[in-house]
Write a protein that binds this DNA or RNA. Structure first.
Lengths: 223, 223
DNA sequence: ATGCATCTTTGCATACCATGCAACTTATGT
DNA sequence: ACATAAGTTGCATGGTATGCAAAGATGCAT
């Protein structure tokens, strides 16, 4: 329980703060131990000990041992949701989503050290990378809902005006999901590409180029 | 070992055939048991017993219990790779990929009964659905490589002719990854959307619409 | 067919993961 | 201060996963 200051909605009573602290302590202990000894050599017992709680308590916070390595930021989804909803109405859904994600990623770079360790751990054991992607995909649904309600309430119409009602209803259900899924995939690709050739280029440039490619309909690159 | 006829490269000696049979028997037993009793009520012991092997042997084939529910088709990646490489040169990368995926999905519908059970199981426990999608994503890398070599050898140039060499090299590395990631996400979204409103529409229609949206740059739908 | 090398299967031992339960400790509201 | 709700803990239990060495099956040359 050595961590009392955490980001996000810091409010609430002592209880909630302690809960958040315990959770954060467990996650941080997990990542640090994994970065040092390798993820699969770290037992829940070690993690719990490092965080100062019992093994049983660990499982009160995480369903699975691996979850501790993955779950760093719990309410990133909520932030993005608001960001998408509050974006200027003039922006297309894709643009709004791009900006929301860019803001989120910028904020992520604040906690540099832990983020870096985290990336190291995931890179070392693909098994966990996979789990991390799963966690990201969980956000996809709420993201899709944010996009959907943005489209419903907004009035920017760039779409095909010759669609039937049936087609329109179909698209309204399908489009947000697709956009969310594609955007998450795009972010992931950006990060991977940038990690591969680190320092060579700025991350934001990669990010920008990826979303430009998406907006252009993924045209074939020059040979 | 009650299954000796399997798809894919059926060649090889008795050993390899038996191995494939055992693996298939385990996977099939897992799916059938899960369809009947629910996935999380099926123990490794039960699966092994149904397949006629020991528990220890199960773990010689699968790293994880859940893998047995997921790993149905091992060499789908290779087929798609060839499909992408052999596509007509006139097609854009996105189109080639779309056709390759459509072919693969059509082939998946051949093995109707087991596929159906499989879908049931995945639908019942989202945990496994996620794992299955992740398994598909593992193919992303080889898919990206296929796309890359197609672009290198092909001569369809729809891209921006005013790019610098630096930008061109960047794009050549980034583009295939992005395309693969986005396409996989698109397929996943199609399947999910289709599962949600089953029978309502044909899967191929959803699939087509999704790729049309991608090619159009994900424009905002009509309100 | 026989014998040998190689691969596969198997049981056993071991360690870890994960959950339910009851007892205990700690916040919160009044 | 008191009652209530919530969080933590140890224990018991059963499933998951790996290493190891012995036994069985297969491939191959003779």
């Amino acid at each position: 329980m050595q961590l009392m200051s955490e980001k996000g909605a810091a409010g609430g009573g002592l209880r909630e703060r302690k809960k958040r602290a315990t959770r954060a302590a467990l996650a941080e202990a997990a990542v640090r131990l994994a970065a040092e000894h390798g993820a699969d050599k770290v037992t829940v017992e070690a993690i719990s000990a490092a965080a100062g709680v019992s093994v049983r308590t660990f499982f009160n916070y995480f369903d699975t041992r691996d979850d501790a390595f993955v779950a760093i930021d719990a309410d990133a989804g909520a932030r993005m949701r608001h960001s998408v909803l509050d974006a200027p109405a003039a922006l297309s859904p894709l643009q709004a989503l791009r900006d929301a994600m860019a803001a989120e990623l910028a904020e992520a770079e604040q906690q540099h050290e832990l983020w870096r360790l985290h990336a190291e751990v995931l890179h070392a054991s693909p098994h966990l990378l996979v789990r991390s992607l799963v966690a990201h995909m969980a956000h996809e649904t709420e993201l899709a809902e944010a996009i959907a309600s943005r489209i419903r309430s907004g009035s920017t119409r760039h779409g095909d005006p010759s669609a039937s009602d049936q087609e329109r209803r179909e698209a309204l259900d399908l489009y947000p999901r697709l956009l969310a899924a594609v955007a998450v995939a795009a972010v992931r690709t950006s990060v991977e590409h940038w990690c591969a050739r680190q320092k060579d280029v700025a991350f934001l440039d990669v990010f920008q180029e990826v979303f430009d490619l998406l907006a252009a309909g993924l045209p074939a690159p020059p040979a």
